[in-house]
């Protein structure tokens, strides 16, 4: 069976498991929304300032809470399940790809819900071509998903994985956040966003290459 088909089966199963656990829907999403709600209250900034920082705050919430999406409990496997996967998959990269696709789908959905909430709480001045933020968000979701999956594999079974993983993943996802943030600023100034899109594409390509290449090594760690 091809790598892609195995990855697709893993992604579908991961999404089904997450659907049943409800971890993203009932825990991460409400917390993310709460964070967006609390920032204006806690800072008591003037409305104009809140409007200026609105999109930036949105990206920060996406980065920080997105880590909990990619590192969700429902996607973690027991040692017995990991052994089973090692004996079942013809190519270990299928696990990386499948879990990344599932996480990217969930992250995309997370951003889709958080976007209107950020607009409601911050009333940011959206760029005229705001729809160009959709591919930016999609690339950010993909980059963060692959980073989170890779980190999840790296820390699997380690004693402090719960604390270490979000820290590592957030650090590694930082370039993606910078890309998304620059894209937003450039759009607001009616400039081309080719450079930040290229940066995001580069991060996606590098993370994918590392993830695919290291799958066998990480599998046998």
């Amino acid at each position: 069976m091809s790598l892609w088909k195995q990855a697709w089966i893993i992604a579908k199963t991961d999404l089904r498991v997450e659907g049943r656990s409800g971890e993203i829907l009932w825990i991460v999403l409400p917390y993310g929304a709460l964070a967006l709600f609390l920032i204006p209250i806690a800072t008591a900034l003037p409305l104009k300032t809140l409007s200026d920082i609105g999109i930036g705050m949105y990206w920060v919430v996406v980065l920080l809470f997105g880590m909990f999406v990619t590192l969700r409990q429902s996607s973690q496997s027991s040692p017995q399940e990991r052994d089973l996967m090692r004996l079942t998959l013809s190519d270990p990269a299928a696990l990386f790809l499948g879990k990344s696709v599932a996480s990217a789908t969930l992250l995309g959905s997370f951003q889709l819900v958080m976007g209107p909430i950020a607009v409601a709480f911050f009333n940011p001045a959206l760029p005229a071509q705001w729809w160009l933020l959709i591919p930016v968000s999609a690339l950010l979701a993909l980059a963060m998903a692959m980073t989170g999956t890779l980190v999840g594999f790296l820390v699997a079974g380690t004693r402090s994985s719960n604390a270490l993983a979000p820290l590592l993943a957030a650090g590694l996802a930082f370039p993606s956040l910078v890309g998304a943030s620059i894209a937003t600023t450039k759009l607001s100034d009616s400039q081309s966003i080719v450079t930040p899109i290229a940066l995001l594409l580069l991060v996606v390509a590098i993370t994918a290459a590392i993830g695919m290449a290291s799958s066998t090594l990480l599998e046998d760690q």
Partner: peptide, 23 residues
């Protein structure tokens, strides 16, 4: 193994179907 390698949130049938699909 002495501990079952099952995904707790899948049904018993789905656990088998998952591996069957991959193979």
């Amino acid at each position: 193994g002495h501990r079952a390698a099952l995904n707790d949130l899948l049904t018993l049938r789905e656990n088998l179907e998952f591996i069957a699909a991959l193979r």
